[in-house]
Simulated assay, not measured.
Amino acid sequence: MKLPNLDTVAGGPFFLMAGSCAIESRDLAFEIAEKINKMTKDMGIPYIFKGSYRKANRTKIDSFTGIGDIPALEILKEVGAHFNLPTVTDIHESAEAAMAAEYVDVLQIPAFLCRQTDLLAAAAQTGKAVNIKKGQFMSGNSMKFAVEKVMHENPDATVYLTDRGNSFGYGDLVVDYRNIPEMAAFNVPVIMDCTHSLQRPNQTTGVTGGQPALIETIAKAAIATGAHGIFIETHPNPAIAKSDGANMLPLDQLEGLLEKLMKVRKAVL
């Protein structure tokens, strides 16, 4: 089990971070991991299993937030061990870093929290890899300082930067592909979050919307403009997903998308 880095992805295939938005159950996590692990192995795509052990940023008070921190983290650890896969999950406060690091290989900093110095420092101090999502209010160039905060605490840290679009008006996001080469200039792998970048936040219903039909468009453009990795949330049936179903990719569509992205990657290398 080895995490992708610039050396391993520079001249080869992109890597994939994918899974359901939240850990809903052990059975679902294993179903998703098994199917994606098989297709990525067949294609030679490095794969990191993703699942949030808790959803801290929800619009409504009664929104699903998780099945419990430790039960969800234990599922993540079990998935990683069973399939020999690295795993990634979000953390939201400094105190969560050490706890989550006992179970996963990559700690993810949510976009809204990418400027939180104490959170970045706590993640770096665990010795785990850190995936920092670019804030919807940030430029690619400004993410240099987030990388510096992590490297200050751990000069040997593996750091990823993930774009997920920029705020546009009150209920939409727009992807600016200038951010990919700008963030790649910091000598870290750059990932495109192809599902969250298509969110329609701040809906009057209190439930975030999305445009999943454009996932392929966002992903192809990201690979074409130099992204090293792709982040996709997927579910066997997004309509019944407990979190972010409106912008997820149906699991049975993932393999076909990856095949197309491999062709784009080969063309631009």
Rank of each mutant, 00 (worst) to 15 (best):
L198K: 03
H235Y: 01
I240P: 06
P212T: 08
V104N: 13
G44D: 11
G209K: 06
P212F: 01
M151H: 08
H228C: 07
N84V: 09
M1Q: 10
P46I: 03
K38R: 10
T87H: 15
G51D: 13
E96N: 09
Q136C: 08
S167Y: 01
E34N: 15
A213L: 12
V264D: 11
F186R: 06
D7T: 09
S139Q: 08
E78H: 06
A227E: 09
N37I: 01
E255I: 01
L254T: 00
A123T: 02
G169K: 07
T40N: 10
R200P: 15
R26T: 07
A33T: 06
M1F: 11
I61C: 09
E78G: 05
L6H: 04
S63E: 14
N5K: 05
N166F: 03
K50A: 09
D90P: 12
G66Q: 02
A241W: 04
D193F: 00
G210Q: 09
E182D: 15
M17I: 13
R26D: 14
A246G: 09
P201S: 10
L254A: 08
V147T: 13
K77F: 03
L76P: 14
G12F: 03
T8R: 05
D69T: 07
S20E: 11
V159Q: 07
D27T: 08
A227L: 02
P238M: 06
A146P: 11
A157Q: 10
H152P: 13
G226H: 00
T89R: 04
L107H: 08
